[in-house]
Design a protein around this nucleic acid. Structure first.
Lengths: 189, 189
DNA sequence: AATAATACATACAGACTTGTCTGTTTTATA
DNA sequence: TATAAAACAGACAAGTCTGTATGTATTATT
């Protein structure tokens, strides 16, 4: 059966392996073997391993965002959507065996990340930040700019900090605990 | 001049390189070259590269802790010491060109980290947690157990989250902003 | 059915990796 | 000063890595 084009199959396999094993630990040969394609075919679609990384990051960012939004869209704007962000992270962690955020992983694995890739990581962060700000403004309106920015930063830190702890402990508890704290925090607004 | 023993020189060089470039990106050959020792000498002191990693983590944990405490010891217990933790992180980041926490780096670079190494990472986290709890108890006494644990987790998340953001943005701003938020947070106790 | 594009298998280059081994030279101790 | 320990230089093994090249087979289009 001809499920999908070679290019798609390569990128799917590479993405999975990059995320699970890391970029450096994943060799071209493993990718072509698991994707079931020839090496020459890979290099016809991607000029280098690094190009594969760039596309992986781009695609993962889009996919992650879409999936997250698909979950959050069902919720009512404001407080509920904000809580949904944390709940989604909890589910994501359990589904992915506590492997953490793909972008944080890459950022830490490759200290000398090229500018393109680093931009993807920063864009991902910015997306989260914007989302948080928007929801906060729905909860409390008007929200003084300085306070709004402060609160946004705080929630982002809690979000990332909980994710990091969850990864290190291989547990959903940090995120669950943080969810409760955030719930209380939002009540004070 | 005979500055230091070969073993020390190896470990110093390896530590520096592991931290700056990452573990995988650092080769044995680079270590011996920059340390100015022979390859045979390295393998007389360390059975493998992985053993070098283990000692690196152990030593870094001890050193980091000692250095942090040397700074914090000058401060008065409670609120000031807690703020000192964040201020120390800010300084540490600037001094180290925003390369982030050595343990977080390793934890993300090597998804399949061996148990010994992972234990070092977790111990580091636990040390921070304990410190935070102690200082909180000084500020507010008695502190109900549930609330104390909650507040500890929150501060740890803010600490780690700010560090992560600072690393990604290569900026001290996230930590500085978080410092202010924490200051206000501690006032409410 | 002929042509063009795509994917195939696989050998190969060249550089890298960790770790071993041999033998020499320096250093410290008795 | 003799002996033992440690560090030296550097070749080598055995394997990995990315990327290229050659030529064949499959697929799609005209």
């Amino acid at each position: 059966m001809k499920e999908q084009g070679a290019k798609e199959r390569i990128l799917n396999t590479a993405s999975e392996l990059f995320y699970k094993q890391g970029y450096q630990a994943t060799g071209i040969n493993q990718i072509i073997e698991e994707a079931g394609i020839a090496k020459a075919s890979l290099y016809q679609h991607f000029p280098s391993k690094e190009a594969l990384l760039t596309e992986y990051l781009l695609r993962t960012r889009t996919n992650n965002h879409a999936e997250r939004m698909a979950y959050i869209d069902q919720l009512t704007p404001g407080r509920e959507k904000l809580m949904g962000l944390f709940e989604y992270r909890r589910r994501h962690m359990e589904k992915n065996n506590f492997r953490g955020c793909a972008f944080v992983r890459i950022a830490y694995e490759l200290p000398g990340l090229n500018e393109d890739a680093l931009l993807q990581v920063r864009t991902h962060t910015q997306t989260l930040k914007t989302f948080i700000t928007e929801q906060l403004q729905i909860i409390k309106h008007p929200y003084p700019a300085a306070e709004l920015e402060e609160m946004t930063g705080m929630l982002l830190n809690l979000y990332e900090g909980a994710g990091l702890q969850g990864y290190i402990q291989r547990s959903a508890k940090p995120v669950e605990d943080t969810k409760k704290v955030v719930a209380r925090l939002l009540d004070t607004l």
